[in-house]
Design a protein around this nucleic acid. Structure first.
Lengths: 147, 147
DNA sequence: TCCATTTAGTCAATCAGCTTGACCATATAG
DNA sequence: CTATATGGTCAAGCTGATTGACTAAATGGA
């Protein structure tokens, strides 16, 4: 195996970090300064039809207590809302507020802004290849890195 | 811009996470159970001629106090050693002990183990392309992700 | 040469985010 | 109808980071 390969980990992590940092900066620049990247992973799960605390905990790969604390924090800041769950009286359905949706739109814009120069640099076909190859390598499920 | 691109962040993060988790598991399997992935980034900087606490702090993108605490922890566990700095009496040169070098070898093996199936799946030329493209995207310097 | 400022490192206190453990309310299975 | 499992919160504690204060040594003028 060529030794060169051993720096692939560093490149991968560096690119991932550049991406996350860039999106985080873009979100902050749009006025959402009280959020961290980790909140973005939560928003991604809540967008759409919302989720329970348990579902959120699984998505983030943390305990239900930690997820509950994050929801409490996000609710206090006005990004999410706890509704009674339609099918289960024990559970609550956590959904994004209008402020929360506005923030996800800002994150989408920020992501596009970060990716645009990448797309220009590589060209569309190589970017598509990159996407395909990464999809083969990525472990499905685990999204949020916590190291 | 094609909407597809918006899932590139997720793929990138997912691949990075798979990689870090895999290496971490490999290192633990080789008997180094008292280390976290973050220590690996420190070892990478210390390998070779060692580094000062300040240099380590910059590499890890944390305060000098945090770096100092990590060094204290690694020294207590026997992975590093603080020597007087040859050129500066204020500074200390942090170097890996034999145990520390053994651990970096274990990490290299683990990394190779994780990358081997990737290389087989993509083939050498596509992997080389992946490496090249990632190197264009990666922000030089920032290695350790802390989000 | 002497003094002012910068730099390397540590100690101490604090904080944020996560964990474990205990608990209540509701759902589900026998 | 009762026993158990599940969703959620409260409380306490831990870990890894932060800021602030300090000492010792280096640097850079007058």
């Amino acid at each position: 195996m060529p030794v060169q390969l051993l720096d692939l980990p560093v490149l991968l992590l560096s690119a991932a970090r550049a991406l996350v940092d860039g999106i985080d900066a873009g979100v902050r620049a749009r006025g959402f300064t009280d959020l961290r990247p980790a909140h973005g992973f939560a928003f991604a799960r809540l967008a759409g039809d919302g989720a329970t605390v348990m579902q959120l905990a699984e998505h983030l790969d943390v305990t239900k207590q930690a997820a509950s604390q994050m929801v409490e924090d996000l609710a206090k800041k006005g990004y999410v809302e706890r509704r009674p769950h339609p099918d289960d009286a024990r559970a609550r359905l956590i959904v994004l507020t209008e402020k929360g949706r506005a923030c996800t739109r800002a994150a989408d814009e920020a992501a596009e802004e970060v990716l645009r120069p990448w797309a220009e640099q590589l060209g569309p076909e190589r970017l598509a290849t990159l996407r395909q190859d990464l999809s083969k390598l990525a472990t499905p499920g685990r999204v949020r890195p916590t190291w």
